[in-house]
Design a protein around this nucleic acid. Sequence first.
DNA 1: CATTGCTGTCATGGA
DNA 2: GCTCCATGACAGCAA
Length: 605
Amino acid sequence: MMEIELPKMHQSQQDMDLIDILWRQDIDLGAGREVFDYSHRQKESALQRQRALEEEKRQHLLREQEKALLAQLQLDEETGEFVPRPPAAAQPPPPAAPAEVTQNGLFTEDDGNPLSFDECMQLLAESFPLVEAIETTPPPLDAPTSVPAGSDGPDMMVPSQSPLPQQKTSQDLEQAWLELLSIPELQQCLNMQMEEALEPTSFNPAGAQTELQDPNYNFYMPGLTDMVANTADTVCPAGYLNTFEGPLPSIIPPDNLNQMTLKAPEMNAGFSPDGFCDMFYPGLVNAKVDSGAAPVAAGGNAALPLAELQSAPPLKPADVPEFALEEGFESRKPEAEAEFADSDSGLSLDASPNASSPEKSTCGDGSFGFSDSDVEEMDSDPGSTESDVSDMFPLTFNPDAYQTATSVATPPAQPPEAKPERPKTEPEEGSGHDKRPFTKDKHGKRRGESRLSRDEQRAQALHIPFTVDMIINLPVDDFNEMMSRQQLNEAQLALVRDIRRRGKNKVAAQNCRKRKMENIVGLEYELDSLKEERERLLREKTETGSSLREMKKQLSSLYLEVFSLLRDENGKPYSPNEYSLQQTSDGTVFLVPRIKKTLIKPEGN
DNA sequence: CATTGCTGTCATGGA
DNA sequence: GCTCCATGACAGCAA
């Protein structure tokens, strides 16, 4: 802020000095300084003084911003919902910053699009109360939109440049710095809760940090800091303009922040594909995958068509925070990232559910020591399947918050009178795309997939060096050996055990149900066969009965025929009433008088 | 809005 | 006593 004013006061000399200072900083970053210095070497002492002033100012700004952030964070913590804002704020800034730079480059002195800067500043202001201080700077910045010269052509431009351009460059640089700083802050807001739980990550790009950045930023948002570092290193010195010019100038109208955000991916590609893209693009990729777009390889971020990006702008912001947080949590393993892509579906699920699920905010203890059961509780909440990550990173993962943040960020871009159009487009994008696509995708996925992704996400969150498959499927001995080889904390061990238990139980349940179904099918088959046999036996019984009756019939007729042929001594036939034929076991047939029987019976009795 | 089927998970008991 | 497995019960989700 102050810096800008000073240049104005002293004009050419101080401008030159500022430029010189800035360039020196750039040199620190790797830029060649000789180009600029020639005319200003004499004023070394003045430059140094100005440098000191600038640094002090910057530090002051940083402090103020930090204070503001802290205040926000505290407030958020009190409410418990604070989480959402940071992600939203965080995302807009990255694109915004580059956009500004590019704008400067594009519009240079004449255009100096105040709107674009104002918008950016508004965004920043909304995201951070501190912005007020920053806003003071914008005016000067707007005027000197010669950034291209500064960034692009230290070599080319400096010698010939007039004081004005130099001032512009310095201002631009300042803006860039401010933006860069602002980004970490935003991230910081997001990650505030996580600070305690988080371990200092390896992400600290010390060199990139430069004086401006607070060391804490790295801690909070390793990924973002990385980005910043990259931008600072590569962009500020020489690549500054180059990186941004291509994509932004042509595409982004100074007034349209939305477009700028949309372009962000391209910009990223321009930056450092490895660090920057990896940081944010995973999210983007995931978002795409979620949205049903063609599956994106890990490095496919750059390939994303602009149309897709525009169509699904909201997705990006949400995703980015998640990933950023994850990285911030700990340096993610490549493996984990890959899984993430796979679990992307899970993530997507998470994203939508999260938006719907209030739990996240409540769950956000920020403590990673949770056991799997804890996570489960969080997960168990309906629609929180994706929230695993969010749970782990309460701050980052509040989609609602993110939306709000985005919406908030957008409004500044859309001054009520000036730009009615934006509000329409942005709101649609923000509210519509972000969550809805995710939800659909999530629902579309099978439960098992989402579940697996859950465990995978948990494992990633705790940086468990094993795949879920390994954890579940390895034999006990191998599993124990594997566990013994890695030093895992209690939380990790608990999670691994739970994953193994759940995984095995899941398989057991599947097998059990399978057996159950098989048993049911077998019993049904047996029932059918038994029914058939019963019918057969019934038919047989009927047939047997009928044949028996026939035989009895034949026997009776035969008996009568035989009996009728018998004659007594007088040649008279025997009366059937008085005699009956009976056969002994040896086949001999006797004619037995019935009367005798009756007579005998009484006797026997 | 209720029902149904599928799936994951937990609790429990047996080996 | 621990682990593994099988299974009933419950809950969430989607159709």
